[in-house]
Design a protein around this nucleic acid. Sequence first.
DNA 1: GCAAAAGTGTTCCGTATACACCCATGA
DNA 2: TCATGGGTGTATACGGAACACTTTTGC
Lengths: 245, 245
Amino acid sequence: MLTDQEGKKMFYPHVSVDCVLLGIDNEELCVLLVERKNAGTGKTEYKLPGSLIYEAEDLDVAAYRVLADTVGLKRVALKQFRAFGSPARTSNKEDVLWLERASNMEIDRIVTVAYLALCKVRKARPDKKYGAVQWTPVSKLPGLPFDHREIIGEAIKEIRKWTEVEPSIIFNYLPALFTALQLRRTYEIIYNKEFDVRNFHKKMNALPFIVPTDDLEKGVAHRSARYYRFDKVKYNQLRSKLNKT
Amino acid sequence: MLTDQEGKKMFYPHVSVDCVLLGIDNEELCVLLVERKNAGTGKTEYKLPGSLIYEAEDLDVAAYRVLADTVGLKRVALKQFRAFGSPARTSNKEDVLWLERASNMEIDRIVTVAYLALCKVRKARPDKKYGAVQWTPVSKLPGLPFDHREIIGEAIKEIRKWTEVEPSIIFNYLPALFTALQLRRTYEIIYNKEFDVRNFHKKMNALPFIVPTDDLEKGVAHRSARYYRFDKVKYNQLRSKLNKT
DNA sequence: GCAAAAGTGTTCCGTATACACCCATGA
DNA sequence: TCATGGGTGTATACGGAACACTTTTGC
């Protein structure tokens, strides 16, 4: 790892990673944004968590570093989904100025590689390295720097494909014990459409890696719901069977 | 566009694009490789066509430039499918040396953005800017520099997904008039498995954008096959219908 | 007439969809 | 007793997969 005279890691000021952390808050699909102070006006603005990569850092490693630094999470599945490299990305002078101050380096253009994750809103507490973070409904995004709005749009399309291919990310997102309603709502919010209750149960029962437990919900003003759990072993068995064909 | 003193475009020596051009030759899935002379041994080696991007060039634009410079093609659908950014990419000194001579710039590490296209082998004739090109069966790849072998592997996985989502690339690849056999063979080679003749015909007939013509094959020593054509208008109509739901 | 590929239908199975009612619980 | 969500079954439609024979043509 290359370092400057003080022994600190040096940034590679040409390539960055940006993380689109999606979560559900208040029955809405939300994206995590971090604060930045506008260098000129001093106003609080928001952006995607991201960082220049270090001189000798892998892209995936950089993305996990951002994840850890932003919300203190380490074991979340992150997926690279696209590189954004328009030279117009840095056409806004304010964005470049902010980045040059933050990195203490001269910036010309930046190619960014975007990553996606599904996170629990409650667990994602800001780490000391970042200021405040805010879960913002994707339907109410504020003005964002660079092409962050476009990146978020692509991430939402991508997560729908991803959950189909790799449903485990959904269960990673849910608590260890979850009800059928929780699972259904999660799908409904991600896909932004409703699913039929009966068909949903049928499908759940058909999936061997969703196993019912004997635990029941308590203290609710209606018939108590059963808790289910995700069986990782059965999931992987099924997965390796499918991949062999 | 930034230029050096001679008015030539300058490379941005941190990010490159690589193009995986896939095609079918001799009933095999092939990838187009370009020659490079090993600076030390003088031996002829092969690599994916690729290039550093220019200072103010968009990634997609750079990929199309490589495509045009390599095989003189312009209207082929190119799809960005992944960024490769391991610092170990440039761990082979020979690769770096070659690149430094070719670009006349100092190279530290390079993040590359990989693109994918399906090309007609016969139409892909080398442009003057490149030396010889060679269509190589993906089952018989030679040693390749950087992580080009890994990139090709990912590209093959990716093209299968892509043809499912966007079958038009297949028809773009085929001649304007094609037989059912040609279409079937194309799918068989891309997916590396056989398809049932009758089911294949049934599916073709069910797709409104594959329209039979009155032209028949001539001069073959067996019953002559019907030619079909791809109807782009019907394809787009169907596509926009599906996307509205 | 024979070699070589073209073209065509039916059955079966699994999965997706649509749809309505009774059950358990707490307030 | 009522409001709330929990949980269940059936009928239909569609698409994928398996499977064999006749037709046309050039040689």
